[in-house]
Each structure stands twice: as structure tokens, then as C-alpha cells.
Amino acid sequence: MEKVVKVISSAVPLANEDIDTDQIIPARFLKATSREGFGDNLFRDWRYNNDNSKKDFVLNDSTYAGSILVAGKNFGCGSSREHAAWALYDYGFRVVVSSFFADIFKGNALNNGLLPVQVSEEYLQGLLAAVKADPSTEVQVDLESQEIEFNGKKATFEVNPYKKVCLINGYDDIDYLVSIKEEITAFEASAITI
């Protein structure tokens, strides 16, 4: 996993609430057997018509760019498909800011170096308004200090201390789990086996 420390970028506003992972990457694009290339179909049905012509959608609007996506509450609900996190990352996003994240998406994002930054609804609305008013608004996200800032407005965000260490150093859970196989084997010997 790539390390995540600090992201300074303009942002892309997507105010819709309850954005589910079927919107982020529709099921018909999950037929690949590798992790790469999902960015092309990120928000496929919001970006393109059936004839592949472009729709009026924020990712098609050259006014907005950057590696930070700012989205409405309950982002990433629905399917557990990790392809949603892969698609956002592959497209170029490194941070998603929202006032609420669905559990499985949040876990998948953290396992792929995509940082979910949860802020208050008020802060989120302020950020969305600022980005819409001035698309060049610079947003700073610092994982070390767990702070987000735009136009001098700061907020802190939560991140599990273990996951923070993983993100900053680029560690994966799998490295740790494999390193404690002996303890797992010992647990198996003592566990209830039905």
C-alpha cells in the first residue's frame, strides 16, 4: 500500500447523500480479475449516457479537479465491493471528505490508502459551498495531526491509531496477521470447535 501523510489539493464537490457503491462502480464493471483500471468506470452511469456521450456531471466539468472528493453523508453505503475504493483511487482521489461513511466502504478505503475524512455536517456544507464558490479553494488534509483545513477553517477528524500507523507507513493488515500465525494456531487449539 502507498503511504498517506498529507494531501493538499483543490477538491471535487458531490453533494448527493447516500451515494452507494453501485453508483461509484456499477456491478457490470466488476468482471475484471485484477485491481487496475476501474477509474475509467468510476460513477459510470452519472458520467456517461448509454451511447457513451457525457452527462452533465461534476467529473465532466473541467471547473473542478483535484485529489479530494467532497461528498454528502452516508458515502459508500451498499455493496461491499472493494472495487469502489479501487475506482476512486485509480481515478486519482486520495481523500474522501463526508459527514458520514458506511462501515465496509471505510474499511476498504483504509486498506487501499484512500483516506476517509469524517467531518461535521456543518463543516461539510461549508466546504461544499467554498469549493462551489471558488473551485481553486485549497484543501489541506494532514493525517499526522488529523486535521483538515480550507480558507483558514480547521477541523479535526478521527482515525483509528492502528490504522493511522498503517497508512503513514504503508503497512497492510495482512503483514501483521501473517506474523502472528503461531498465536492463531495456539488459539485454534483452545477454541470452541463446532
Binding site: I104, G107, N108, N111, D173, I174, L177, V178, E188
Partner: peptide, 22 residues
Amino acid sequence: FGIGTSQVAQVMASQCLLQSRP
């Protein structure tokens, strides 16, 4: 519960997951 593909690999490799208690 449902998991992402990175976690599928973790369970394959260790039969365990790192989980915060809900």
C-alpha cells in the same frame, strides 16, 4: 458480515481479521 477483497486475502492468509468491536 461482509468484507472487502483485501480482507478476503487476509482471511485466506491467516483465518483472521483485524476488527474494531461494533
